[in-house]
Design a protein around this nucleic acid. Structure first.
Lengths: 198, 198, 198, 198
DNA sequence: AATGAATGAGCCTTCATTCAT
DNA sequence: TATGAATGAAGGCTCATTCAT
């Protein structure tokens, strides 16, 4: 499969991402993807052999991008811990809000059925990574006096569970941008409120 | 529809709940339910006309039960606010952990595709109800000096988003009972920690 | 599956037999059988799950009938060995000649690909049974002076291999009724020729 | 088509023969042959337009070779009739036994469906040729006293039907080398047995 | 009310065949 | 000549839904 093929494969993955975003995982048929890509039924099988196959590749692509972004954002340079955490949360917010390419429900649906070993579960890997990043940022903030927090890990986990709650809620009961800001701010303020009091 | 019919309808709903719990929403076929109920294909159609029909009735039944329980727990008597909140959280924890009859993913799957009007969305109704209950409990706790909280609504929402995050996480990446306790405790401690300091 | 179902199943088997007879084994699709039976695609799957499934049942039905006929013919009564052998050969000839319901090639095709254990191979079972029957008849004929044969088993096998050759030839290169008579007579004459000489 | 082309065509035919030998006729796809030849899909179409096309050419090649061999064996020189017949049968036996390049079932399968005119049927041509060869050999043997046979043509046909029976049996119910020897010997002995008596 | 056989739409998958390069 | 990506027809199979009993 040459360069040209790789391009087409990526094209299919891009289209498929939108489809999974709109319909979840199990709802998506090969025909849906064929239609979205405007290619032939047989043509799709040259690149992928099942919706699961496609879905996992879509997920793999996504993880890479997002992790890179998030991690780079967190590690890049000499911004203050508060600014970096704000940046991280901005990424999460973008993630929560995006309509297209939002694989939240599809992913939940897929892994809730798959029951694969905890180790290999990319959802868990991503969640744990995010917790670690946030924990580190809070620790840094505490060290330089920006934050007050006696339990950075607990706070980081709390934040990420809120983010998970917001993600699923935005896809199921709908949630406004303002509401997201409000929730994330609520957590952030817990980190600085005592400081303000003093 | 006579009394006998109502009984059979409930029987079907009970069996169907287990099926939806195990397979999500879209994965479930009329045959799955027919098999689970050990009735005939045609018989099922006497009571329900589609899996969606059944699913919505299952959901409706569930909401009723749970709301009742939760509301009763919250309103019953003269227990302290802290005890009542602890009771409410115990219900939530049971909800998060239960394997059978756990419609979390099926529900998310269903409503993420349905995009029905916010008003009619039972998920939203249930979420909002829970927030109001928690808010009330916190306010009561603040009033009688049990809790310290400047923003009861914000805190209630934070708690419920954490609960949502825990629910979906328990179905996708797995989560231990201890982890749930830890997360709920983390939020509760935020309500009493300042008190302890004083 | 009640009596009525059994009737329909038999109906399908009867129609399918004709199809296999005309097209061999691998050439036959579920659609071919559906068309032949004038039922729906889904309807066929209520009774059989694959062409192989159908084919094996068709074969099973056939074996039973034929074996019964042949064996009964061979064992029935006090006819002379010569008459009984002639009767047996008449059955074989009918088998060789019949256009409809002739599963020869389909069977050969199927078992040449299946490579199943020799023990379970119904073709072999049928062949061996026929050899034994013929051997017995020849022995009886020798005992009562009708036949002259020093090697009844060898002669029986020779006869049955000729029958096999005639069967396949009649389906591939075509063969007239006269030619079949001639071939069978040739073998029969070998049994009595010496007697005539004496 | 140049010499180079002819060479490649032959290369394809050789590879295809193995495929047909393993899978019969209908089971073979253009892809099977493309894979066996390690050429491109389009490349194959430069030489052949269908599996049937390829199959017929494979058959044609085979016939030529075998006829040549058999005829040459039969006509070559001054060997005794018995030796020549033994040689001929050895060829047949090789044919019956060979695993690779054995087109028996594929051929039967093909011609049993094709129902082509008797004249053009290479199977029939080959069969008739073989009968004539054997008949001639027997006649020669009778002439010089090696054999005793009142009906050389009948005997020749009997022999060739046995060979056909052995061929198909070896592919369907399995047959040992010893069994083949035994069967061919049984026929041969019929030609000389009377001589032994005298 | 209840049954379950029957239907046909729709998705999955394979493969002969074409065609731009 | 040679390639292999692409197509679309065809067959396999499942499942919601109907209907005669």
């Amino acid at each position: 499969m040459g360069e040209k093929s790789a391009k087409k494969k990526q094209y299919i993955l891009d289209k498929a991402r939108v489809v999974f975003s709109e319909k979840g995982f199990k709802n998506v048929t090969m025909k849906d993807i064929v239609d979205a890509c405007d290619i032939s039924r047989g043509g799709l099988y040259l690149y992928f052999s099942s919706t699961e196959d496609i879905f996992l590749e879509v997920l793999a692509t996504e993880s890479d991008e997002d992790d890179d972004e998030a991690i780079n954002a967190a590690l890049s340079g000499d911004a203050s811990a508060g600014d970096m955490l704000a940046l991280f949360l901005k990424e999460q917010k973008k993630d929560i809000l995006r309509k297209k390419n939002n694989l939240t429900v599809a992913t939940y649906e897929y892994y809730s059925v798959k029951k694969q070993s905890v180790k290999d579960n990319p959802l868990k890997v991503k969640f744990d990574t995010s917790v670690r990043i946030v924990e580190k940022l809070i620790e840094n903030g505490v060290d330089n006096g920006e934050f007050v927090c006696e339990n950075p890990l607990g706070c980081a986990r709390n934040l990420m569970y809120v983010v998970e709650g917001l993600k699923i809620s935005s896809k199921t009961i709908g949630i406004s941008e303002e509401a997201i800001d409000r929730e994330l701010m609520y957590v952030l303020e817990g980190l600085v409120s005592d400081e303000l009091n003093s």
